[in-house]
Each structure stands twice: as C-alpha cells, then as structure tokens.
Simulated assay, not measured.
Amino acid sequence: MPLRALLPLLLLLLPSIGCGTPPVTVPPVTSPVATPPSTSSEPSPAEPRARAALQVPYAASGRYAVVRGGAPPRPGPGTVVRYLVEVERGLPFDPRTFASDVHRTLNDERGWGRFRRVDQPPVRVRVALSSPRLTRRQCLPLRTGGKLSCWNGNRSVINALRWAKGVPQYDGRLSDYRHYLISHEVGHALGHGHRPCPGPGRLAPVMAQQSKSLGRCRPNPWPFPGRNSRERHQTEDRRR
C-alpha cells in the first residue's frame, strides 16, 4: 500500500494527547517552602535569552512544596476562590516568582475572577509547577507525552518544560503563553470544558487547546480579552 494511503490510518492509531480529563493518580508528598498585569503581546528582549539558558530537567524530586504566604484577591464584586501554589522541589524556578506570576494572571481584569492565594487548605484549586515526568504521572490516564499540562482532581498541573519554553504558535510571546497555561488549566477547575476555534482569524477561546494547535484562530491567553478596554471606557464615561 502506498505511504500516502497509510497516513490516515497511522493518525487514527496515535495516542490521545490533551488536557482536562480528570485522571486517577496517587498524589506526591507535599511539603512547605518558606517565602516572604502583564498586558503586552510582544516578547521582551530578555525572553529568548532566558529560554535558551534555562535547562528544565525531565525529572526532579517528585515532591511538591507549598509556596508559603498569601495574596489578596483583586477588588470588586464576585465570589473569592481560595487556591494555593505548589512547586516541585528540584526545578530551576523561584517558587515566589512563580506564585506571583500565577496570582497576577488569575486576578487580571481579563481573567476568570477574584482569587485569594493561601498556603493552607481548604482550597478549590492547587496550581502545581511540575517536571515532565511528574506531569505524566499526575495526568494519568491522560497521555501528555511529557509535553502538555492538565487538570487532575483539584490540581492544575503545569508542565515546567512548557512554562520555560512556550510553544511555536505563540511566536515568542512567552509571558502571554504563561497567562494562557494558568487561565486554561484553572478554567477546568471552574468547570469549563474545551472549546474549538470559532472561525479563521478570530481569537481562540482560552479553553481551546492552544498548546496543541490554534486551528485557524489567533492566540489568546484570557477568558475575557476585551474586558480591560471596556472597563477603561466605562471609567472614562463616568468621569465626563
């Protein structure tokens, strides 16, 4: 049989890879670690150099440490979601910096809502930076191939390799891709499922699997990408 005729059959046989399917896993041991809105869509000059220099190990300790301390939710109405941040020991990331990045994303005007970071249960979601090997283990039976992130139980498992390197379809905008990772996986925690690209040239829904493909959409890291501009205009109208 010609190779061209075999390709569709081979594609059907490839393992399923994605995020958001609730897997059944054995959670790793979690221990504490002490600690005391980006709007640009352009990569900073330091981002490509930082990605080139950072070496993310395939496997680290396999043990999470809760980032100590907390942060308040953004002002305004709406239910406050309690969450905590975990970082696998042995990864080349500062836990406090990661926690700060997560908090800014979750409480951005374009984000899901109001989030309070704590370091003690009860919490609705744990955001966990994980090595590729721990990501694979935490996401089973979903097959991530050590490349994707997932939602598991009450844990948003963020693949450290993707956090460090991003994906080509974000065209070097690492900060935007990181906003997407957090927004997407926490979106699953809030009960949102995957969504397809709504049409060529349109912004991808944040719940589209943008780490795999944009389809024919444009990248978008936010649940409500137009909200900040609307609120700014409403503020200006009130001042007139």
Score class of each variant (00 low, 15 high):
74 R>C: 00
70 G>F: 00
65 A>D: 05
74 R>S: 09
118 V>F: 02
107 N>C: 10
94 D>P: 15
105 T>F: 10
116 R>D: 05
104 R>K: 09
117 R>K: 05
69 G>I: 05
95 P>W: 14
93 F>T: 03
103 H>F: 10
81 V>K: 12
61 S>E: 02
120 Q>M: 09
77 P>N: 11
104 R>L: 10
99 A>Q: 08
118 V>H: 04
87 V>P: 05
101 D>T: 13
102 V>S: 06
87 V>C: 05
68 R>G: 15
89 R>Q: 15
115 F>V: 04
99 A>I: 11
97 T>A: 13
97 T>R: 15
62 G>R: 01
96 R>Q: 10
104 R>Q: 10
99 A>T: 12
87 V>A: 09
78 G>A: 07
120 Q>N: 08
78 G>S: 12
78 G>P: 08
64 Y>M: 02
118 V>T: 11
103 H>T: 13
66 V>E: 02
120 Q>A: 10
108 D>I: 12
68 R>Y: 12
96 R>W: 10
106 L>G: 13
105 T>V: 13
82 R>Q: 08
83 Y>Q: 12
88 E>R: 03
65 A>E: 05
116 R>M: 08
104 R>C: 09
96 R>G: 15
61 S>R: 00
79 T>H: 10
64 Y>K: 00
118 V>S: 03
108 D>G: 14
92 P>H: 11
100 S>K: 14
85 V>Y: 00
112 W>C: 09
115 F>P: 03
80 V>N: 12
100 S>M: 08
92 P>I: 03
60 A>E: 00
60 A>R: 00
99 A>K: 07
106 L>P: 02
71 A>T: 06
95 P>D: 14
61 S>K: 00
92 P>K: 07
61 S>L: 03
109 E>G: 07
81 V>I: 15
107 N>L: 06
72 P>S: 04
114 R>I: 00
101 D>Y: 11
113 G>C: 01
81 V>C: 15
99 A>W: 03
95 P>I: 13
77 P>E: 12
81 V>M: 11
71 A>M: 10
76 G>P: 12
95 P>C: 14
69 G>W: 04
73 P>V: 04
90 G>A: 09
105 T>D: 08
112 W>A: 04
63 R>F: 11
55 Q>L: 05
88 E>D: 07
74 R>T: 09
94 D>M: 14
65 A>P: 04
77 P>L: 05
98 F>T: 06
107 N>E: 03
56 V>D: 02
110 R>M: 03
108 D>Q: 13
106 L>A: 05
116 R>L: 04
115 F>G: 01
85 V>E: 05
65 A>V: 02
67 V>A: 11
120 Q>I: 09
68 R>Q: 14
89 R>E: 15
101 D>Q: 15
97 T>S: 13
62 G>E: 02
84 L>E: 11
119 D>V: 07
69 G>K: 06
100 S>V: 13
95 P>H: 12
